[in-house]
Amino acid sequence: MTDPIRTHDEPTPLGCDPADLARVEAIVRQSGTSFAAGMRVLPSYRRYGMYAIYAFCRIVDDIADGDTPSSLSGAGQIQERMAQLEAWHARIARLYNDETRDALDRVLHAAIRFFALRKEDFDAVIDGMTMDAGSPIVAPDEETLDLYCDRVASAVGRLSVHVFGDSSEHAKRVAYHLGRALQLTNILRDVAVDARTGRLYLPRDLLMRFDVPADPQQVLVAPGLAGVMRIMAARAQDHFREAFSSMKKCDRRAMIPARMMGGSYLAILNALERRGWDHVLTPSPVSKLGKAAGVLRAFAA
């Protein structure tokens, strides 16, 4: 691959065809999340770099969750998902050999060159999705849970901080801690939803410590579940604190999107803690105002 581009004087973001940029942005907007709006704070070339990363993540996540069209079921569908994710490893490898085939390829390739994105981080994301694509994860050991969080969240963070404009060691620490904070918050928020699909991301050692069965069908009514959730929430809070502390040592402007994301997710975790861990079946929605307040607190952290 050629050396990363260090300057940008192209007439369009990342020097890409406007039609390619529009196709990638459409993938982001069709996902129905607030991600596109959140990235509006970025200059256009960084924004489209993030759109490309998000589109990649969205597609491989849909494969892992079985949300892509398939005529197969059961073991056949699982094998199909694994093959599709393996194909993405090959597709990423082609990009690093300067081979592109469609709009997403071309915008991803431009982002890879412009921001010096690491192939290992794309591969880690795919490997994380592969962990979800096979048999459901049920009560992993601590090492497996941490590896999962690193792959599906912190690896995305490592890609993102490069696009945001800071590739320092401190920025890598932000990715490490913020990724884990966000993923643990997701696990805590979605424990009931995951249980209905046969998944249980809470670590086996903690479940055993609180006499909680390592069974998605029984975990929600186990008396000791609250103790497990409190410890996991404390871990998430620790990661948020470490992430915000590392942000102070990074480029201030580059960390604006990271602070926004961290603040909105910290608001979710705080709402879950206010609801209490004895009521995991009770929703704890956070209003836009609540998330905005969380973002403001993140900028003050």
Rank of each mutant, 00 (worst) to 15 (best):
M1V: 14
D3T: 13
P4E: 10
T7A: 15
D17P: 10
D17R: 10
E25W: 01
E25K: 15
A26G: 02
I27N: 00
V28N: 06
S31W: 08
G32F: 09
G32D: 06
S34N: 09
F35M: 02
A37M: 10
G38A: 11
V41T: 02
L42E: 10
P43I: 01
Y45R: 13
R46M: 02
R46P: 03
G49M: 12
M50T: 12
A52Q: 06
A55N: 05
I59Q: 14
D61S: 08
I63M: 03
D67T: 00
T68Y: 04
P69C: 02
L72F: 14
L72P: 07
A75L: 15
G76V: 10
Q77K: 15
I78Q: 15
E80P: 10
R81M: 14
R81E: 01
W88Y: 08
R91M: 03
A93H: 15
N97H: 14
T100V: 15
R101D: 13
R106G: 04
L108M: 15
H109F: 12
I112M: 04
F115I: 12
F115D: 13
D121R: 05
V125E: 06
D127I: 07
D127V: 00
D127M: 09
G128F: 09
M129D: 06
M129C: 15
G134N: 08
A139N: 05
A139E: 02
P140M: 00
E142A: 14
T144N: 13
D146K: 07
D146M: 09
R151Q: 15
V152H: 12
V152L: 09
A153N: 05
A155P: 14
V156S: 03
V156N: 03
G157M: 05
S160G: 01
V161S: 08
F164S: 07
S167E: 10
S168A: 13
A171W: 10
A175P: 13
L178S: 01
R180Q: 10
A181V: 06
A181E: 05
N186T: 01
D190L: 07
V193S: 13
D194T: 08
R196E: 15
L200M: 10
L200E: 05
Y201H: 12
Y201I: 06
L202N: 06
L207Y: 12
M208L: 12
F210M: 06
V212N: 05
P213S: 00
P216D: 07
P216R: 05
P216L: 00
L220N: 02
L220I: 11
P223C: 00
L225V: 05
A226E: 14
V228Y: 04
V228S: 03
A233K: 11
R235G: 00
A236W: 11
A236G: 03
A236Q: 07
H239T: 02
H239R: 09
S245Q: 07
S246I: 00
M247G: 00
C250I: 11
D251F: 07
R252M: 01
R253K: 14
M260R: 03
M260P: 03
M261C: 04
G262Y: 08
I268K: 06
L269N: 03
E273F: 00
R274P: 03
R275T: 09
R275D: 11
D278E: 13
H279L: 09
V280S: 04
L281H: 03
P283S: 00
V286D: 08
V286E: 03
V286T: 11
S287F: 04
G290W: 08
G290E: 07
K291L: 03
A293L: 14
G294V: 07
R297I: 02
F299K: 05
